[in-house]
Design a protein around this nucleic acid. Structure first.
Length: 204
DNA sequence: GTCGCGATTGTCT
DNA sequence: GACAATCGCGACC
């Protein structure tokens, strides 16, 4: 019988999210983000993340245990979805750390895997494929993710993380777009797959 | 190709 | 009323 592999995407085990934040930021690379929608499924492979080590990290929204309506979710259990609005864009985070410890990981870029037509519709037909998901705002737009997922969990449909394979080589470097954060500007807490054309452009 | 600017909206002081 | 974990575009090399 001739057959081809059809990947069945199912939510990853909740234990996956219990790793320390820097480790989890690395572990997220190569996993899949799945968004099930009436029009069809969209799947993107994660190629870039950034760890935010609240409350000690000046660049984190939860620095010094700042607890507001916006940051509240980060004090919850690991694996929750923290969405944040930046200008007109939605940014997706994975909550990390024990309850009461507000760590989070920003998912910055991905590689389109399934639902390419839907992604193209979401992003615009004039763009090159490498510009569909190479930034945190672009990634959310491509997946059709909005603020309504704030507080959901990354193991619950219709938006969940599914197990993939780790990249061959991971690069660590300083994070992007956090200008006035003192020493924290230099922490090498951005991780990405080496040589991936889908990684966001670095802006000092 | 790279660089600089301004849009635009939720959130917090 | 200021600011932001960004993006897209236009100017220029």
């Amino acid at each position: 019988m001739k057959w081809r592999a059809i990947a069945i995407y199912t939510p990853i085990d909740k234990l996956f999210f219990e790793a320390p934040v820097l480790e989890l930021a690395r572990n997220l690379l190569g996993q899949y983000i799945v968004h099930k929608q009436p029009e069809g499924d969209i799947v993107v492979r994660i190629v870039e993340t950034e760890a935010y080590h609240g409350p000690e990290d000046r660049a984190a929204h939860s620095f010094d245990n700042r607890r507001t309506k916006r940051t509240e979710i980060m004090f919850g259990t690991a694996g929750l979805i923290y969405t944040y609005q930046m200008h007109t864009h939605t940014l997706m985070n994975v909550v990390s750390g024990a309850i009461g410890t507000p760590h989070a990981i920003l998912i910055r870029a991905g590689e389109p895997v399934v639902g390419l037509e839907l992604i193209q519709e979401n992003r615009g037909h004039h763009l090159k494929m490498t510009d569909w998901t190479n930034g945190p705002g672009k990634l959310s737009k491509a997946l059709g993710v909005t603020m309504k997922y704030y507080g959901h969990h990354w193991t619950d449909e219709p938006l969940f993380i599914a197990a993939g394979a780790a990249p061959e080589e991971i690069v660590a470097g300083p994070r992007v777009g956090i200008g006035n954060s003192g020493e924290a500007v230099h922490y090498p807490w951005r991780f990405y797959e080496k040589d991936s054309p889908y990684v966001s452009k670095y802006r000092p």
